[in-house]
Design a protein around this nucleic acid. Structure first.
Lengths: 386, 386
DNA sequence: TTTCGTTCCGAAACCGGTTTCGGCAATGGA
DNA sequence: TCCATTGCCGAAACCGGTTTCGGAACGAAA
């Protein structure tokens, strides 16, 4: 004591940290010798705070490790600095390996704005609206990401009526530019990918190309079918309704549709699938028919699920960058909640072709293929052990 | 005016819904003719509110669709009614198809308590602590689920020091009962599963059984290795260090370790893998060596990833119910944040054996297997096109 | 009738921030 | 010199709930 010549005077209630361990605004304020309203405005960039004061406040806040409680801010501002997404856990293809990538992208983007992400799941269509409703009513998020947009989407109606910001991962209404609609979205152009798949098969020399679509309730299913039709047109090939199948939501349903196509009198030598999962379903059918994928029949998928590279032969597919989708969606949604017009927040990305061994020049004509299929079917029927 | 004989008297500020559209506590209160403190206490089950009033309040609240804002409550109570989890997005086996199931379970359990779930991702070990720190400091959650516990886990140290409730998906310290530790956890007994895998192979008649572990930094890797040793002991088989491999984090690394085992002078005729992914890696090696899985060599996995049923032959594995894990973890964590002692919140579940075609009685002795491997290797080396 | 203890509710403080409003001092112009 | 701005900050209200505290009303005991 004696050795200290200048004991600090006027050190009023020097409780740097309160009992809770957190530094709160009051403490930061009287540590700075300012009022808490001044500190708050300094931190929030109000123009009526001098530049020097602002710097000092910011520096001290950082030094003391001050972090506002987001829910304390929310009570006055009405914004919780969080975005939410509710995923459907009841889908047949629910084992989506991309969820983690998608969340990684969305969370990283949100973190960059100092926002967080809350997530929930719904068991059914009806449950979806309940879950969404609870999140909205309790104001758990300032905006929503809506994955897997449907042609008729109840979520959109609800959120629009509730006047809550949201962004679509996908488009609605088959993707027609909907000028009076005020929704923002991000999507990957599945139609462009499928179109180029057809072009690619045509370039290989295929003359009959089939298409297996996905669940028609999802908007992307229609877009990809249109991409197929577009591809045929570009290649100046005729449209044969026989070659268009729908509703392959799962691997097994993909197998069913592939079988139907291959058992045609005039089967396609190349098949484009709307999803990888459905495309992988065709592998078992081809094995059953003794058809060599990539030679007897060419298969193309879409999504880029990891399994594609481990099947034999590897599945050529259009890979979607889910992480980037999450990033873009989160960023655009946050910007929307900050006041940007939804009309300006729309982006269309492209899937990336990953060439593997499941497609190539046709070894057989459709007639030869048909012959081989019926022959092998009869052969298998004759004796179980060839 | 005149025609109305009894104008409603005393109808003070009958603004059922304020401008915001939400019903707030004040409005509910003066709709009931009560003070907002009474209404609040009635809704929160205080004992100094008469039963009849409580009923009336609850009924009216439901009728008017009143929902308290969780962040408005949080400011006073300090509880945000949310749990959080941060997943590591930088792992080699990050394409975890179970995340969705896990989240579904956790979200459903949380919803049942009227809680929500916030999620975040971390790119690296260091980032993990940053992300966790931000969530803690902003008080975005009342408790944390820590997936994939490591032998030395920095997250645990941090949260313990911060005095924030958390629960482990997994155990620590190799799983020794750690009596003075006060952590709660839920886990699936990988050791019991692997042990029974050894027993199963022994019953098939295998005399040499190998084990391929996972990343030693994760606690489960050690537990499963101990399960393997336990299984050998139960079957009264000797421990051969040659048959124990470690560090197969991915499919490719699984392949590497499988190759090492099969190229032994005394190779195992059955191999138990700590993860399905690693086990699937062995398929390509067996194909390369011309070995028929399920006959020449038996393979057993663990996890129950969907791909197991689509490879040929189907992989016998121990399936983990991720959804249930999420449910249990969320529920136990919430109970912990409500004051229950962590010591009482521990649960060990069992994995379920799913029998497929990748294991069975050994067709070859280890010597014959070794012979076949070297023969085929030389054969392949002699000419690329057999 | 008085006193005491319950039962039940309202007034007001409180949580940790944000935002409005007004005032002081310095500045500029007349 | 005086008045009107302007720049900068503090006091206080406010957000929507929760919790403390005190007191009115009532019945039972004295």
């Amino acid at each position: 004591m004696i050795t200290n010549p200048s004991p600090p005077k006027h050190q009023p209630t020097f409780r740097r940290h309160s009992a809770s361990g957190r530094v709160k605004l009051d403490e930061l304020a009287d540590h700075l010798g300012l009022s808490k309203s001044t500190v708050s405005r300094a931190l929030n960039g109000y123009s009526d705070i001098s530049e020097s004061t602002r710097k000092r406040v910011e520096a001290t806040a950082r030094k003391m490790g001050y972090r506002p409680l987001s829910h304390a801010q929310a009570i006055r501002t009405g914004k919780v600095r969080a975005i939410a997404m509710v995923v459907n856990s009841g889908e047949p293809d629910r084992h989506n390996p991309f969820l983690q990538d998608f969340l990684a992208g969305a969370c990283e983007a949100a973190s960059a704005f100092d926002w967080t992400m809350t997530i929930s799941t719904a068991k059914s269509e009806k449950d979806m609206l309940n879950v969404l409703g609870r999140l909205v009513e309790e104001r758990k998020a300032d905006g929503f990401i809506l994955p897997r947009t449907e042609v008729e989407d109840a979520r959109i109606e609800y959120l629009r009526a509730s006047n809550v910001p949201f962004i679509l991962y996908g488009r609605t209404g088959y993707g027609q530019t909907d000028p009076d609609s005020d929704t923002s979205w991000f999507d990957i152009s599945g139609e462009a990918a499928i179109c180029s798949a057809v072009t690619r098969l045509r370039a290989f020399g295929h003359s009959r190309i089939g298409f297996v679509g996905s669940d028609p309730k999802f908007n992307y299913s229609h877009l990809r079918r249109e991409g197929y039709l577009e591809g045929l047109k570009a290649a100046e090939m005729p449209v044969d309704p026989e070659l268009i199948r729908e509703g392959a939501r799962s691997r097994d349903e993909g197998a069913t549709q592939a079988r139907a196509l291959l058992e045609l009198d005039h089967p396609p030598t190349g098949i484009v699938f709307a999803t990888d999962l459905a495309a992988l379903g065709s592998y078992s059918v081809c094995a059953e028919f003794g058809l060599q994928i990539g030679q007897d029949v060419s298969i193309l998928g879409y999504d880029g699920i990891p399994e594609c590279q481990y099947v034999s032969p590897g599945l050529t597919t259009f890979s979607v960058d889910s992480k980037r989708a999450g990033e873009r969606l989160a960023e655009m949604l946050i910007r929307q909640t900050r006041g940007e017009a939804p009309e300006g927040l729309r982006e269309l990305g492209q899937a990336e072709l990953v060439e593997r061994k499941s497609d190539g020049p046709p070894r057989l004509t459709p007639e030869e293929l048909a012959h081989k299929v019926t022959q092998l079917k009869n052969g298998n029927r004759g004796g179980d052990r060839p």
